[in-house]
Computed example of a mutant assay.
Amino acid sequence: MSRNLVERVLYQLCVDRSAKQRFKDGAEDFLARFALTDAEREMVLAFDVKALQAYGVNSMLTMGFWQELAPQRDMRSYMKQLRDVDSTSAVFSAGIKG
């Protein structure tokens, strides 16, 4: 339907504890409440953060969604998904320390 709706779904999953639990209990049932297209629903169910970002979804929302609910919630896995690297490649992420 729209990138905006996908962003609202991801935002809810990042900040609403009961939404997170409902998603964990049955992701497809949780998403059925929203007027998502099949492609949008599949991106969320597959935790396809690269496709979500290519669709225009805010990168902070995709990162939060990944950290809250993805099966492998570490940042190394997240960065691998975004960069299409194989298991022998190095993946780096930078952070600001202050």
Rank of each mutant, 00 (worst) to 15 (best):
78 Y>F: 14
56 G>N: 08
42 E>P: 05
71 P>Q: 03
46 A>K: 12
80 K>G: 12
63 M>D: 07
42 E>Q: 14
52 L>K: 02
51 A>S: 12
20 K>W: 01
69 L>N: 06
65 F>N: 01
79 M>Q: 11
27 A>E: 06
68 E>W: 07
45 L>M: 07
15 V>M: 05
26 G>I: 02
12 Q>R: 07
38 D>A: 15
35 A>I: 04
12 Q>W: 01
48 D>N: 12
62 T>S: 06
27 A>V: 04
32 A>G: 14
70 A>S: 14
20 K>D: 09
81 Q>D: 05
61 L>D: 08
9 V>H: 06
12 Q>F: 02
39 A>W: 05
79 M>V: 15
15 V>G: 03
60 M>T: 03
85 V>A: 12
39 A>T: 01
38 D>I: 10
69 L>Q: 08
55 Y>S: 00
23 F>Q: 03
85 V>H: 00
53 Q>W: 00
87 S>G: 10
75 M>D: 05
87 S>C: 04
38 D>R: 14
39 A>S: 10
51 A>G: 13
66 W>Q: 07
50 K>I: 03
38 D>P: 11
38 D>K: 13
27 A>Y: 02
36 L>Y: 08
62 T>N: 00
36 L>N: 12
22 R>V: 00
57 V>Q: 06
66 W>E: 05
72 Q>S: 09
66 W>Y: 08
17 R>P: 02
30 F>D: 00
31 L>S: 07
75 M>C: 03
62 T>L: 02
66 W>R: 07
48 D>L: 09
34 F>Y: 15
34 F>S: 02
73 R>L: 10
60 M>E: 11
31 L>Y: 06
80 K>Y: 09
69 L>E: 01
22 R>I: 00
46 A>Y: 02
50 K>M: 11
60 M>F: 14
56 G>E: 09
84 D>S: 12
59 S>R: 10
10 L>Q: 03
76 R>A: 13
34 F>V: 04
61 L>W: 11
40 E>L: 01
80 K>E: 10
74 D>M: 00
74 D>N: 15
9 V>P: 03
73 R>A: 10
32 A>W: 03
74 D>G: 11
11 Y>V: 04
26 G>N: 14
86 D>T: 13
79 M>F: 15
34 F>N: 00
68 E>F: 02
30 F>W: 08
44 V>Q: 08
28 E>M: 08
86 D>M: 02
73 R>C: 10
74 D>W: 13
13 L>A: 01
52 L>A: 13
26 G>R: 05
26 G>S: 09
